[in-house]
């Protein structure tokens, strides 16, 4: 599994990196690298069952009260 994931990630690297370097788009390269690394971290953490912050829970934290308030107003 981990091998498969790494293969896919490096395939992406192989696809996109040469062009970015050739065109000297350094800023783009930086953004690319950040997203790529983030994705890698998330996937690897996922595979090894590491605890990850769940963005949905964050959003739920914000919007659940709104929902409840709305429910109360209208019931």
């Amino acid at each position: 599994m981990i091998l498969l994931v790494l293969v896919v990630f490096f395939l992406v690297l192989w696809l996109e990196l040469p062009k970015l370097i050739r065109q000297r788009w350094w800023w783009e390269l930086a953004v690319f690298a950040v997203i790529w690394a983030l994705a890698l971290v998330v996937s690897v953490a996922q595979i090894y069952d590491l605890p990850l912050p769940n963005p949905t829970h964050g959003l739920e934290y914000i919007f659940k009260p709104v929902s409840h308030w709305f429910e109360e107003v209208l019931s």
Partner: peptide
Amino acid sequence: SLRRRRFLTVMFLIFVLL
């Protein structure tokens, strides 16, 4: 372009894997 070909190659590989 070169990119397109690579894209196709990668897709093909992923297909085979999947």
